[in-house]
Simulated assay, not measured.
Amino acid sequence: MSNNTPSTNTELAKERNRAAAERTLMAWIRTCLSLISFGFGVDRIVTTLQKDYMDDSLYITRILGLSFIGIGTCAIFLAAFEHRQELRHIQHENYRYKSRSSLAFVVAISIFVTGIFAFVGIVIKSSGS
Rank of each mutant, 00 (worst) to 15 (best):
Y53A: 03
M54E: 13
M54P: 00
M54Q: 13
M54T: 01
D56K: 03
D56N: 11
D56V: 03
Y59G: 11
Y59P: 00
I60T: 07
R62C: 02
I63D: 03
L64M: 10
L64E: 11
G65M: 07
L66Y: 13
L66V: 08
L66W: 08
S67W: 08
S67I: 02
F68G: 07
F68V: 01
F68P: 02
I69S: 11
G70S: 15
G70T: 13
G70D: 09
I71V: 15
I71W: 04
G72H: 08
T73F: 15
T73Y: 14
A75E: 08
I76A: 05
I76M: 15
I76N: 05
F77Y: 05
F77R: 00
F77W: 07
L78I: 01
A80N: 08
A80S: 15
A80T: 12
A80C: 13
F81A: 09
H83T: 04
R84M: 12
Q85A: 13
Q85E: 12
Q85L: 09
E86L: 11
R88Q: 09
I90H: 06
Q91H: 04
Q91F: 03
H92P: 01
E93P: 01
N94R: 00
N94C: 03
Y95G: 01
Y95M: 05
Y95S: 01
Y97F: 10
Y97R: 03
K98W: 04
K98C: 06
S99W: 10
S99I: 03
S99M: 09
R100L: 04
R100G: 15
S101G: 09
S101V: 09
S102F: 06
L103H: 13
V106Q: 06
V106L: 13
V107M: 13
V107K: 02
V107A: 05
V107C: 09
A108T: 15
A108E: 12
S110C: 12
F112D: 11
F112A: 15
T114F: 05
G115K: 11
